[in-house]
Design a protein around this nucleic acid. Structure first.
Length: 652
DNA sequence: CCGCGGAGTGTTTTT
DNA sequence: CACTCCGCGG
C-alpha cells in the first residue's frame, strides 16, 4: 500500500516512525484512529507479526472501534491483541494469578459488588457502632478507588474532595487495608486490582521480559483518559523496547472523575525522552460550520487550547441548530420526525445519533422512538448487568464457580423468606468451614434451615453433579429463580425474558468463569448478540449514547439533547472550576461527533422526582459567541413563551 | 431477627 | 419517582 498517498504528511509520519516512541496529539476528527489503523498495516508490511502488536485504550466502545478498524484491511490483523486496560489485565492475570497469590478462577467485583464488600468490612471494623459519622459505603469505596487510581494518599484525597468526612480518614485508610485483605482471602479482584496486579507483575524484570517477547509494539488510544495506574502500565510495557505510540487529545479529556489525568500526555516526553511529537490538526470529519461551534466552545474555556480545527471539506455545511421546546414530549416527538425525515432524504438510521449527558434525560426519546418503530441501540447509563435480577442470577453462577463466594451467598440467601443479613452471615460462616461444595451443601442440608433453602441446595447439587454446559446451567438456575422473581418484582415477566435472552449469550461460552469475567468487563449489549449483523443498512438502529460512551465515534447527524443548566453542565460539577472545565470539554466532544448536521435541543418544563421545575438553557449555549454560531428556533406552543427571550435572564 | 410501612432523600459520567 | 433508612410489631 502507498501510505504516503492515503495519509496526510503528519499522519504518514506517525505511521512510518516505528523505531522510536511517538506521541500523537490530535484534535477531534483528525484521523487518530486512522493513524492506528494504518500503523498496524504498516507494521505488518514491515514483517511484524500481528500477534506481537498490542492495542490498548480505556473504554470498551473505543476499544471495539479501534480493533474493528484495525482489522478491516487485512484479515491477518484480527490476530492483534488488544482491548481495554482492564480486559488485557484480566487476560494476563488469569494466566499468572498464582504469581500474585490468587487462584485463577478469581471473581471480578463490579462497582456495586465492591461497595458491598467495603460495607461488610466497615461493619467488621465497627464503623456502625462508632460515634463518628462515616460516609456511605459507596462513597468509601470511591475514596479508596480514587486513591489507588491516582496514586495519592487517602488523607490527601479526602482533604481535597471529602472535607466533610475528613475526621474519619484514618479509619478509612485502615478500612482500605482490611478491604484489600478481604478480597485476597476471598479470591476477589475488583476493577482497580486488575490494574494493580498487572502493574505489580510488570515491575518484575523477568515477567516484563516475558511480555516483551510477546508484545513488540504498543499503541494506546485516548491516552488523555488514562490515569496514573494506567500510565504506569504503559510505561512499564514499553520502557525496555521503546516501541510505543500513544495518541490523545487533551481537549477531549472527560474522565477526570475516575482519576484520569491528561498530564499523562505531557509527561510522556519525560518518560520517553527520545520521543517524536506529532500534531494532527486537519479535521476530516465535520463541516466548517460545526467546527466553528466547536472552536468557539474551546476558546470559551478557562484553560485555552491552542487548537483551531480546520475542516477539509469544501462544503461549509449548514449552521448547527438550537431548538427550544416546551416539554420533553415535544422535544422527543420533533426529534423522531426529524430522524424519519432525514432517513427519507437518504441518511440511514445508523448514521444518526442522539447524545446526552446522562441516560436519564433520554427516557422520553426512547419512548418516542419505540412509538415510531425506529430501531435504536442504547449505550451508557444503567447497565443491564447491574440490574437486580441479572445480579441475582449471576450470584448463583458465581457460587458454582467458587462455592465460598461470600458476597454471592449472602445475596442469594437473602432472597429466601425469613433470611436477612444476620441469618445469611451465620450460614456463610458455616459454608466457610467446609472444603467442597458438596460438603457445604451436605452441612446445610443437615442444618435447621427451612425447606426453602433445601430447594436451592438441591438445584445447586444437581448442576454440580451433572456436567452441564454453561447454557444449560443458566437455564437450570433460571428455572429455579423463576419462583423468586415472581414475588420480588411487579414487572417480573419483562425481567424473566431478559434472563432468557442471556441463555443464548451463555451458550457461546466454554466456562462459567469466562462468562462471568466478560460480564464484568465486556458485558453483552442489552438484548441478544448478533443484533446488528445481517441487517441491511436501512434496518440498522440509530444510536442513543451518553457523551462519554460516544467518544471516538462519529455520525452524519447528531442530536445533542438536554442542553439544560444542571444537566450539561451537570449540577454536581458546579462546585469547582476544574469539574466545570471537564463539563465544557464534554460539550466540545459532543459537538465534534457530528459530520454534517448538528442539533442542540432542550425543553423548558422538566419534571424531577415528581416535582415540576423550569429548566434554563445551559450556560454553555447562553452566551453570545456561541449563539452567533447557531440558528435558533422555538418549537411547539410558542404562546407560552412569548414573554421571554433566551438572551434575557429567566425569572429565578 | 425479619420484614413491613412510613418518612426522608437525592438523582452523572466508566472499568 | 424510586430508593434507602429507621423504628416498631410479630
Amino acid at each position: 500500500m502507498d501510505f504516503a498517498k492515503v495519509l496526510n504528511q503528519a499522519q504518514f509520519q506517525a505511521v512510518s516512525t516505528i523505531d522510536k516512541p511517538v506521541l500523537v496529539i490530535a484534535g477531534a476528527g483528525s484521523g487518530k484512529t486512522r493513524v492506528i489503523e494504518y500503523k498496524v498495516l504498516y507494521l505488518i508490511e514491515q514483517g511484524i507479526n500481528p500477534e506481537n502488536i498490542l492495542l490498548l485504550t480505556f473504554t470498551r466502545r473505543a476499544a471495539r472501534e479501534m480493533l474493528g478498524r484495525a482489522c478491516s484491511h487485512n484479515p491477518r490483523c484480527s490476530q492483534i491483541e488488544g482491548g481495554t486496560f482492564h480486559s488485557f489485565a484480566n487476560k494476563i492475570l488469569r494466566k499468572f494469578a498464582k504469581n500474585v497469590g490468587l487462584a485463577n478462577n478469581f471473581i471480578i467485583l463490579d462497582q456495586s459488588d465492591s461497595s458491598e464488600a467495603v460495607g461488610k468490612c466497615a461493619i467488621k471494623l465497627g464503623f456502625n457502632d462508632s460515634k463518628k459519622k462515616f460516609p456511605q459505603k459507596e462513597t468509601m469505596a470511591g475514596i479508596i478507588s480514587k486513591s489507588l487510581n491516582k496514586g495519592i494518599s487517602i488523607q490527601k484525597i479526602m482533604q481535597d474532595e471529602y472535607e466533610y468526612f475528613l475526621e474519619t480518614w484514618e479509619e478509612i485508610k485502615n478500612l482500605a487495608q482490611i478491604y484489600q485483605k478481604y478480597k485476597r482471602e476471598n479470591n476477589y479482584v475488583d476493577y482497580d486490582d486488575l490494574l494493580l496486579y498487572l502493574r505489580l507483575l510488570l515491575q518484575n524484570l523477568d515477567f516484563r521480559n516475558y511480555l516483551n517477547q510477546k508484545y513488540h509494539y504498543l499503541m494506546v488510544d485516548e491516552f488523555q483518559d488514562t490515569n496514573k495506574l494506567q500510565g504506569d502500565i504503559t510505561y512499564l510495557l514499553a520502557k525496555d523496547h521503546q516501541k510505543v505510540m500513544i495518541v490523545g487529545d487533551d481537549a477531549q479529556s472527560i474522565y477526570g472523575f475516575r482519576g484520569a489525568n491528561h498530564d499523562n500526555i505531557l509527561s510522556f516526553p519525560k518518560q520517553f525522552p527520545d520521543c517524536q511529537i506529532i500534531k494532527l490538526e486537519q479535521n476530516y470529519r465535520s463541516t466548517q460550520k460545526i467546527l466553528d461551534l466547536g472552536n468557539t466552545a474551546l476558546s470559551n474555556m478557562q484553560k485555552k487550547f491552542e487548537k483551531e480545527l480546520k475542516s477539509s471539506s469544501h462544503d461549509h455545511g449548514t449552521k448547527p441548530k438550537l431548538l427550544l421546546f416546551k416539554n420533553a414530549q415535544d422535544e422527543a416527538e420533533w426529534i423522531c420526525q426529524k430522524i424519519i425525515q432525514l432517513k427519507e432524504e437518504g441518511v440511514d438510521y445508523y448514521k444518526q445519533a442522539v447524545l446526552f449527558r446522562n441516560a436519564y434525560i433520554s427516557i422520553a426519546v426512547q419512548a418516542e422512538l419505540s412509538k415510531y418503530n425506529i430501531p435504536f441501540q442504547m449505550f451508557g447509563g444503567m447497565k443491564f448487568y447491574e440490574t437486580a435480577h441479572v445480579k441475582d442470577l449471576l450470584s448463583y453462577l458465581k457460587i458454582l464457580v467458587n462455592f465460598k463466594d461470600e458476597l454471592s451467598w449472602s445475596r442469594v440467601l437473602q432472597l429466601l423468606p425469613k433470611i436477612g443479613p444476620k441469618s445469611a452471615d451465620k450460614i456463610t460462616d458455616l459454608i466457610n468451614q467446609t472444603a467442597t461444595l458438596a460438603e457445604a451443601l451436605e452441612i446445610l442440608q443437615a442444618s435447621d434451615y427451612k425447606f426453602e433453602l433445601r430447594k436451592l441446595i438441591k438445584v445447586l447439587q444437581e448442576i454440580n453433579d451433572h456436567d452441564l454446559s454453561v447454557g444449560e446451567t443458566m437455564q437450570a438456575m433460571i428455572a429455579y429463580y423463576k419462583n423468586i422473581i415472581k414475588t420480588k418484582f411487579d414487572d417480573w415477566q419483562l425481567r424473566l425474558s431478559d434472563l432468557e435472552s442471556l441463555v443464548i449469550v451463555a451458550e457461546n461460552y466454554r466456562s462459567l468463569s469466562s462468562l462471568l469475567a466478560d460480564f464484568a468487563l465486556e458485558p453483552p449489549q442489552q438484548g441478544v448478540a448478533g443484533f446488528e449483523d445481517g441487517k441491511s443498512d436501512d434496518q440498522k438502529p440509530i444510536t442513543l449514547s451518553t457523551i462519554h460512551s460516544a467518544k471516538g465515534l462519529e455520525w452524519e447527524v447528531v442530536f445533542l439533547i438536554g442542553m439544560i443548566e444542571g444537566v450539561l453542565p451537570s449540577k454536581f460539577s458546579l462546585k469547582n472550576s476544574e469539574q466545570l472545565e471537564e463539563e465544557h470539554r464534554l460539550f466540545y466532544v459532543a459537538i465534534t461527533r457530528a459530520k454534517k448536521y448538528l442539533f442542540l435541543t432542550m425543553h423548558h418544563v422538566g419534571r424531577n422526582a415528581g416535582i415540576f421545575q423550569f429548566n434554563r438553557l445551559s450556560r454553555f449555549v447562553e452566551n453570545s459567541s456561541i449563539l452567533r454560531k447557531l440558528e435558533q428556533e422555538y418549537i411547539g406552543q410558542e404562546n407560552n413563551f412569548n414573554d421571554f427571550d433566551v438572551m434575557q435572564d429567566l425569572p429565578f
